[in-house]
Every structure is written in C-alpha cells, then in structure tokens.
C-alpha cells in the first residue's frame, strides 16, 4: 500500500496529479460522481425542508455540514493524508442532515464528527469499515438520548420515488456500484413480495413498502458507497443479500424500526471477511485520465 493508495482510501480527490489546492483542480476528471451525489443530496435536502416540512432546521443542516468539513480537515491534517478534500465529507454531512433528527444542536455536531472520524479510525486492511453516515446514525441511536430517525417522513409518492431513484441511479452508475443497489433492491423486494404472497396479502402492501422514500435513499445513496462495499462483484451481491435479509429480520421478526440502518451497520462487519474470501480490485475514485466508474487495482 503506497502513499497514493492511502490518499485514495480516504476517498480523497484522487487524481494523481491534482494534489495542489484545497478544491479539486479544474483540470481534474470531467465529473467526479461525488459531485452528482452532492448536488442530488443538496436538492433532496432543499425539497425536504421546503416542500415536505421535514424537521430539519436550515441552521442545523449548516451546522452538521460545517462540522463534517472541519472534522475532515482536522483528521486529514492529523493523519497526514494529503490535501483536504471536502467532497466525501460533504456527502456524509448532507446525508446526516437528511436522515438524522435531533432537537439538540450539540448532538448534531457530535454525529457529524463521529461520521467523519470513523473513516479515519475504524479501518481494516486500509479500508474504512462503515459507511460514515450509517455509523454515525447507529452510534447516535445507540448511545445518545435525543436522536431519532424518521423513516416514514419521505412518504411514498411514486413520482417522488421515481425521481429520487433516477437521480440516485445516475450517481450509482457514475460510481460503478449499481450492482450493490440492484442486488439489494432485488433481494429486499423479493423478501417483501414473498412474504405478502405467503400471507395472502394484496401486492399493494409490498409495493407500498417499496415506494418508501427512505428505502430509495438508502439503496441509492448509502449501501452503494463504493468505499465500504466488498471489492468483488460476487462479494457485493452477497453483501447486498445479507443487508436485505438483516433489514427484513429487524422489521418483521424484531418489529423494530430503521432495519436498513441496523442491518447495514452489522453487515459492514462482514465486509473484510467477504473481501478475504472473494477478493477483487479495490475501488478508487476516477483519476484524471480515467473514465468515471473505472476501477483500478491498488
């Protein structure tokens, strides 16, 4: 693992040449998929705040995003891992804004710090174990008193789900992790539909569950994180199936909410194992000369 690989492991800019300046060099890759992701997440946040009246105060959102960026800056400096790149931290911050609810500003800050710090600290084989947002949410749900997640608040409008999926698909395709998303959705849909068929319920029930905005958000923006999914395609499909099974278990066996988040967090622990038995090329964000979605061996 050389120095470059370390930089990449941080989901940093990633251009072998773009190492100067705080922001990615203008000559860098045509489009970093993360820019699409940032734009989409920001759009969703705006939609949530102004149209859906989500319980997110604009000032809280700003606080979370700023805290994530500052933590990224500090951790990058402390770890000596090359130049500061705000993109991944921005994504984590925006995702937290979309999903986490709290009435205590200091907890919002703590969640942002936890998310980013986990990337630098919880690592196995030089790969961070948890999706930062997922880790922060689960940690906060476990250990903080005043945090909750509202999985129903995105509603089930089919149009909205479609838009979100389309926008998400773009991100996924650019990041070349469509396989995780598709495999997860296929498994989860299979479980939900199978359950309803067995129970003799109308298909409207599983379809309504699948239209859930939070599920779409999770499938296209969280589980698809290329930095934390297994390296090989087979491994990713296996991982997706595990997450789907876990989420189903939490929802229908344990009757708890936020099954997707709990399941992803627990299944993330299996990724090093999957990588060991099903090795594959490690993902790196596209370099200047690479096409989006291209992967290289590290």
């Amino acid at each position: 693992m050389n120095r470059l690989a370390l930089v990449e492991a941080e989901a940093l800019p990633v251009s072998a040449t773009a190492t100067v300046g705080v922001l990615p060099a203008p000559t860098a890759p045509r489009w970093d998929p993360r820019l699409y992701q940032i734009a989409t997440l920001a759009g969703l946040l705006g939609y949530g705040i102004w149209w859906l009246d989500l319980e997110v105060q604009p000032q809280t959102a700003v606080t979370i995003v700023l805290s994530a960026l500052v933590t990224q800056l500090v951790c990058t400096r402390l770890a000596g891992r090359g130049p500061f790149d705000p993109r991944s931290a921005l994504i984590s911050g925006l995702s937290l804004c979309l999903l986490m609810r709290t009435g205590v500003p200091s907890l919002a800050v703590l969640a942002a710090i936890t998310a980013i710090a986990s990337k630098f600290t919880l690592r196995i084989r030089d790969k961070h174990v948890f999706n930062p947002t997922n880790f922060a949410l689960v940690a906060m749900l476990l250990f903080a008193q005043d945090v909750w997640v509202s999985p129903g608040q995105w509603g089930s409008g089919i149009v909205f789900a479609f838009l979100l999926a389309s926008a998400g698909a773009l991100v996924v395709n650019r990041a070349a992790r469509a396989d995780v998303t598709l495999a997860f959705l296929a498994c989860y849909a299979g479980l939900l539909i199978g359950r309803s068929l067995w129970l003799g319920e109308p298909l409207a029930i599983p379809l309504h569950r699948l239209e859930n905005g939070a599920l779409v958000l999770f499938s296209f923006f969280m589980i698809s994180d290329p930095r934390t999914t297994p390296d090989s395609r087979l491994g990713r499909v296996l991982f997706a199936a595990l997450v789907a099974l876990g989420a189903y278990t939490v929802q229908f066996w344990l009757f708890r909410t936020n099954g997707l988040l709990w399941s992803l967090a627990v299944c993330s622990l299996s990724v090093p194992l999957i990588d060991r038995f099903l090795p594959g090329p490690r993902f790196r964000w596209p370099a200047a000369t690479a096409h989006p979605g291209e992967r290289k061996l590290v």
Partner: peptide, 9 residues
C-alpha cells in the same frame, strides 16, 4: 409518528 406513512403537521 408513523414509520410507514408520512406524519404531517
């Protein structure tokens, strides 16, 4: 609040 439907004020 409901988790499978939107709860709206």
């Amino acid at each position: 609040e409901t988790t499978n439907y939107r709860t709206v004020r």
